[in-house]
Design a protein around this nucleic acid. Sequence first.
DNA 1: CTATCATGAAACAGCATAAGTTACGTGAAC
DNA 2: GTTCACGTAACTTATGCTGTTTCATGATAG
Lengths: 147, 147
Amino acid sequence: MRQDSRLSRMLHVLIHMDRHDGALTSEAIAAMLNTNAVVIRRTMAGLRDAGYVQSEKGHGGGWRLACPLDRVTLLDVHRALGDPTVFAIGPTDDEPRCLVEQAVNAALADALREAEAVLVRRLGTVTLADLAADFDRRLALSGKCGA
Amino acid sequence: MRQDSRLSRMLHVLIHMDRHDGALTSEAIAAMLNTNAVVIRRTMAGLRDAGYVQSEKGHGGGWRLACPLDRVTLLDVHRALGDPTVFAIGPTDDEPRCLVEQAVNAALADALREAEAVLVRRLGTVTLADLAADFDRRLALSGKCGA
DNA sequence: CTATCATGAAACAGCATAAGTTACGTGAAC
DNA sequence: GTTCACGTAACTTATGCTGTTTCATGATAG
């Protein structure tokens, strides 16, 4: 099943925005991600509504961070994107009459809930600042290795 | 994103097969799941190849369990279905050149890996016999409550 | 032996959703 | 007032599970 890459993309953009002076246009961001400006506007809309970025129209306009990176976790961004479904597997029927199906759904739901709790906890403890720091570490390493 | 319900469906079927004397035809199974016989054959093929069920052609043919329920975990069934992607979210590019993207992907991959490990551990510790036992418990309860 | 039943498999259409595209409106800066 | 950039709607594309049709194969009943 095809995966939703919006979270990954938006995290990527937000770190770049932090390292960039002035506003970034949707066109520029789209070029960075090899995609389309409208897709960027559509996806960034959630982050804007959540207050993590702000947009400006007209000359010199574009997108800017509206909030320091250490105040935003990966979970915050996920939520801002509309809390999309995490799992690609799940039951068909949420309220089955069949008791067998109820038992199956309960077991699966338990397992998925537990896994999602771990994921949410993990995403909630990592901030964008942490990612930026990891980027800096990688940058220093790549400099040392000449790669 | 739409969810893959094959695991849920196959677990449902396997428990029913255990409680049923004789073979179950794809048509009968499809009727139980409100779907199509060809879909059943297609999905059951993986379970057959894994040795969890067997199929017989002709009069009185159909599907039977080939293995006791306590020998099969939910994870086994998941694997038999081709180990489909568990997560609906993920990165676009697996080998990005951009160091920011690498940092983002590493963080997300870590979180997803951890969550998947929890899910796999959970699915691997629950057997079909456990589900059947839970079904029996629900059956007894529903009888008591008159529901 | 033949008809019937049931699986096996290929081929194609349906459907949902992220993604890509086009088009037009709105507001800000030059 | 022209240009730039976002905002939004509408449409198309791509992908993968799902559903359906069709025919072949093999097993059983009569």
